[in-house]
């Protein structure tokens, strides 16, 4: 018979670490999806997910069971991704000269007629990845959670541990930072 999450967690806390495995199996897809939003290389993604699970195991005592385990775990995953972003800021200062041909074409189409550039094009996805990589870690986290994942300011405050006013300030700054990067990108391309 399958044991419930609460039973598995209680067993782990009682010293049966093998009971942690079903939790890893169940939630790893979600943790991997989250990590892939912040890191590109598969080795980095695996490192992030591994760190999330090790942290979850060692901090399981602090899980009080008031909220679902998934929420607690995803909060930990986002915070680990944020720590990863802070530690890997190498791509931020690079130029946009390495833009590929499809990305170039997509931008040309957008300049000619904004409506004609499709949002579901692979080139648009590559471009937004490039822009996100150049954002500062707090700006990237806020843009990801607020604009892309469509979460509320309150939710972001809960996930990140920041206060609601701080999330609002960082969101305002992040949008400005993103516009500056887009301006730099278009300037490099068209001037």
């Amino acid at each position: 018979m399958d044991r419930t999450e609460a039973e598995l967690i209680a067993a782990v806390l009682a010293g049966d670490s093998a009971s942690f495995e079903p939790l890893v199996v169940k939630y790893s897809p979600r943790v991997f999806a989250t990590a892939r939003r912040y890191a590109r290389r598969e080795s980095e993604i695996e490192d992030i997910v591994q760190e999330v699970w090790l942290k979850a195991f060692h901090k399981l005592k602090s899980f009080r069971g008031e909220a679902p385990f998934e929420h607690w775990l995803m909060r930990m995953a986002v915070r680990t991704c944020y720590d990863f972003l802070r530690g890997h800021q190498r791509n931020r200062e690079s130029s946009f000269s390495e833009i590929s041909e499809p990305e170039d074409d997509w931008l040309d189409r957008f300049v000619a007629d904004p409506g004609s550039a499709p949002e579901n094009a692979d080139a648009a996805k590559l471009l937004i990845d490039r822009v996100l990589e150049k954002l500062s870690p707090p700006a990237r986290l806020v843009i990801q959670l607020l604009e892309i994942e469509d979460r509320s300011v309150k939710e972001i405050a809960k996930i990140t541990g920041w206060s609601v006013p701080l999330v609002k300030v960082r969101a305002f700054r992040a949008r400005g930072e993103m516009r500056k990067i887009l301006a730099r990108m278009t300037k490099e391309k068209y001037l």
């Binding site: 957008f110 949002e119 094009a121 648009a124 996100l132």
Partner: peptide, 10 residues
């Protein structure tokens, strides 16, 4: 452009 790219990411 920002809106379009964010929509692409979504």
């Amino acid at each position: 452009l920002q809106k379009k790219l964010v929509a692409a990411a979504r």
